[in-house]
Design a protein around this nucleic acid. Structure first.
Lengths: 353, 353
DNA sequence: CTGAAAGCGCTTACAG
DNA sequence: CTGAAAGCGCTTACAG
């Protein structure tokens, strides 16, 4: 038995034919952007209803119009990962808010495609793109987008000359946090760092690794800490998560007490929560024996402490990015925006000794 | 001074011309899906590089190929709202996981467009769609999608005959929770309900309103509670949030103590957390003077209690929906999936008196 | 108010 | 291995 012929769906041409009008007129009847007599319009709509025509095909329309009504958001990794990180969620929330006037859809894309058929920034039908904490390989994608004339906004991401960037004071904020630890008398301070690279590793970080790193946020925050503590050792994590913080915490804390740092600067609140968890498991009192400082200012699920942290305006960052997209699409040239983080002093830091 | 002519971006035809080959050959050089000599391919790529051609236009490609590589997720309301609800986030996470084999992008769409130019389900270039807690007006959209032959999966949503649905046991689970309260000796029980409709209201709900309601989840959970407590009054909220729960809590609790319920069945954990907050503000002890039960099994930020709740597998629901999408796109006919919730007994419920 | 024509940029049989 | 042709489904000037 032969296969059924693929059920072809009616097109505007079919509707036009059925209604006895030209395709142009039928088009006008649907878009409402031209003068069509009520009678004709009615005839077209009736024909459409009869044929089960559901309106213009979005693909054809976007090709013809040159716009898809979609704003892409490029995530560092798998789309899934974004839903596990409260900072990203807040930022996405802000972006959605910022682009609201556009009535556009939000398309979540991974930074790199894995298979042949994977939808990537380069192959996605987007009108504009927001890059979120972009990694190394984004630079190629950025070139491709620019070649195609697609507006780009970067959040914590070097998008290049003349493109708006939304940033926070990673270096200065961390420096301020470190300074606070110094004021509390701490001398032995270690850093639990975000990933340095697209390649995910764990463990102590050498100077060579730092020199070769590409994750700007990680580097800026590390540099801020080392402005106060030039010799602070750093442990790399594979992601911003409580579990990764816990692993790094054990690396730093499950040693001879004499070799233990008295304070840890974690580059995210999730990492800080993990460090605190590790300390608790090892019977190390926070903040009595160990001070911990985070970054982000989110509330971490299940954490019984009021974390000392650098509170950053995640939603505002996203909103600013969304607004920049709106302006770019309107042909304007929005400025870059630099936000400031605030040191929130909680109960996870204490004076030494 | 006249405007600059809009800078036209190079097309495949330009590249082909420059390379001295036909458009078909140039296309093959990019897609790699046909036999092209290495020399020719190189020439094409060189021409592309010189012209700054970044590869085939996604819009044209998707029109021609008939697929966009995008899966749409339709949210009840504004896209923003989804990022505020942990249950939705988890479900989205599951969907992203489920469709991973597709390499598709995830497009977030509001249930209803507001402006003329708004991207809606009907005007979005999607290959398949997941409807999340769809409301009343989804039915029109569903017809439109079906007319266009786009596969649909519903999560807690009546998508119609033959289409796969992912559900949980809303009625039975709530009934079980109510039964537990009855076992604890409670007689005066009230329900704090999710919205009954697209139109958002607050306050006591009449039988007429129940009869006219369209939100199936709300109705099923209410019916489950009333199977045990047929006369349980219900208060409607405008959304699933702590603040809405707090408002409803005051409605029920800020009255003559003799008229107060001894237990409240909240239809979500966020609502339950709000109710508990209201009780605390009113000096009513939970669970001493008031038992509260939620629904979802999420951890609520800042809630100091271990909430008694009906734990539902949100991520698994999303994953099942994603997997159903994959099967539909492969031409298979996936089954509907019904999940079961578990009664988690925490410390917000206690024996009466 | 309506229609004929061109074209958005690509891909895919089909010949050669 | 390469090219000429048709066409995906629509919209938009341009005439009438």
């Amino acid at each position: 038995m032969p296969n059924d012929p693929a059920p072809r769906h009616p097109t505007l041409a079919d509707v036009a034919a059925k209604a006895g009008v030209s395709a142009s007129t039928a088009s006008l009847a649907f878009s409402g952007s031209g003068p069509v007599s009520d009678a004709t319009k009615e005839r077209v709509l009736a024909a459409a209803a009869e044929l089960g025509y559901a309106g213009p095909d979005p693909r054809a329309r976007s090709l013809r119009r040159g716009r898809s009504g979609i704003v892409g958001v490029v995530l560092e990794e798998r789309v899934r990962a974004a839903f596990l990180d409260p900072v990203k969620i807040r930022t996405l929330d802000g972006i959605a808010d910022g682009i609201a006037p556009l009535g556009a859809g939000l398309l979540l894309l991974p930074d790199l495609g894995e298979g042949e058929s994977t939808l990537t920034i380069e192959s996605a039908p987007v009108d504009a793109v927001v890059l979120l904490w972009c990694g190394l390989r984004s630079s190629r994608s950025i070139e491709a987008l620019q070649a195609r004339g697609i507006p780009i906004v970067g959040i914590e991401c070097e998008v290049g000359e003349g493109l708006p960037r939304i940033t926070i004071d990673n270096h200065e904020a961390t420096r301020r946090g470190a300074e606070y630890l110094r004021e509390l008398g701490h001398r032995d301070v270690a850093v639990v760092a975000l990933p340095f690279d697209t390649v995910r590793r764990r463990g102590a970080v050498s100077d060579e690794q730092v020199a070769a790193a590409t994750n700007v946020v990680t580097l800026e925050r590390l540099a801020g800490a080392r402005e106060i503590y030039p010799d602070a050792p750093a442990v790399e994590t594979a992601a911003s998560s409580i579990e990764e913080g816990r692993i790094a915490g054990f690396t730093l804390l499950d040693v001879d007490p004499a070799d233990r740092p008295t304070a840890i600067i974690a580059q995210s609140d999730l990492l800080a929560a993990g460090v605190i968890g590790a300390a608790e498991e090892l019977g190390i009192d926070v903040p009595g024996e160990l001070s911990v400082i985070g970054f982000d200012g989110i509330r971490v699920d299940g954490l019984q402490h009021d974390l000392t942290t650098l509170d950053q305006p995640s939603a505002a960052k996203g909103r600013a990015a969304g607004e920049a997209v709106v302006r770019l699409l309107a042909g304007e040239q929005p400025e870059s925006v630099a936000f400031t983080s605030t040191l929130h002093i909680g109960d996870t830091t204490a004076r030494l000794g």
